[in-house]
């Protein structure tokens, strides 16, 4: 229904069809809130000839604000128990399930066919549950007790790398987004996500899911805008620890990696079809973790007598 039609059909005993549709303002998601871009700029992504609406064009200051939010949330998020993070990821899946119809329709608006859209929504929900399950398990798979040749207890565990800037998939607006956010935050990282420039609507709507899923503010921050405007600002940001890029053109990857070297950021480049099940695996969690090794002496006194 067009705006004009809605106006025409409005009446006193209005039927549904006569009602004026309330249009959605697509905002960004920073620190658990939904601000517009501080720059007050917008762009209109166009899919199959029609505009998706007025979408925020994030500025470097939006990047800065989002990184600040992610950094302040990081310590608290990583100190949550793994069980708690698992439940929150599961909760995201629950909320997404409840809105699957909306996400499917939005994906169709962004150019997917109906069948693919429905599959992607289901897969996104299942992927969240998959990583929810990993929250309290990846540590057991990837940690080690190391049999050092001295009287020390030595173990290596994974710790979140910190703040991860994530450039979401260009062509897979929901599944690609979820497939990176979930493993990044499962271990206790926080992230700033730059939504698909071409198809940003799912990311914005996903923020609404996050906001109602017990995810603490700042754990996931979602920006919309143009990658080329923002590349330098997030790649050089000294408080970003790692960058995940999905499906960018090679020149952009190079630029990001060059800037990233200024503070030895970890940069992970992905090019994958997220609808294949194999792309969901705990190695993605490990990609955004650091290995920490801890040593401690073991006193040498036993039933056979002291060694002192």
């Amino acid at each position: 229904m067009t705006v004009e039609e809605s106006n025409k059909n409005s009446g006193e005993n209005s039927a549904k069809s006569e009602r004026l549709e309330v249009l959605k303002t697509y905002k960004m998601y920073i620190d658990g809130k939904f601000p517009r871009t501080e720059s007050a700029r917008y762009y209109q992504p166009v899919v199959n000839g029609s505009s998706l609406g007025n979408v925020c064009l994030a500025s470097r200051k939006d990047v800065r604000n989002a990184v600040v939010a992610a950094r302040s949330a990081q310590a608290g998020w990583s100190r949550r128990t793994a069980y708690n993070r698992a439940q929150i990821l599961y909760r995201i899946a629950e909320m997404l399930e409840g809105r699957s119809q909306q996400f499917s329709e939005e994906l169709v608006r962004q150019g997917l066919d109906v069948e693919t859209a429905e599959i992607h929504v289901s897969q996104s929900i299942d992927r969240l549950i998959y990583y929810a399950g990993w929250c309290d398990k990846y540590q057991q798979v990837f940690s080690a007790v190391n049999p050092v040749a001295s009287s020390h207890f030595n173990f290596s565990t994974l710790e979140p790398v910190g703040v991860v800037f994530t450039v979401a998939s260009r062509d897979c607006p929901l599944l690609g987004l979820v497939s990176l956010i979930a493993p990044v935050i499962a271990s206790g990282n926080t992230c700033v996500v730059l939504a698909s420039e071409k198809c940003p609507l799912s990311a914005v709507t996903f923020a609404e899911v996050l906001a109602t899923s017990d995810v603490p503010g700042g754990v996931v921050n979602i920006l919309t805008g143009r990658i080329k405007e923002l590349t330098e600002h997030f790649s050089r940001h000294l408080d970003v620890n790692a960058i995940a890029c999905d499906g960018l053109e090679p020149g952009l990857n190079t630029e990001i990696k060059e800037f990233a070297s200024e503070n030895i950021k970890r940069v992970k480049i992905y090019h994958q079809d997220w609808s294949t099940e194999a792309t969901a695996n705990p190695y993605l969690i490990q990609d955004f973790c650091e290995v920490k090794t801890t040593w401690h002496p073991i006193e040498q006194i036993s039933e056979s007598g002291a060694a002192y």
Partner: peptide, 12 residues
């Protein structure tokens, strides 16, 4: 912890 500068091939 309670030691320093130890290295071992098994220890990352």
């Amino acid at each position: 912890a309670n030691t320093y500068n130890l290295f071992d091939p098994t220890s990352p």
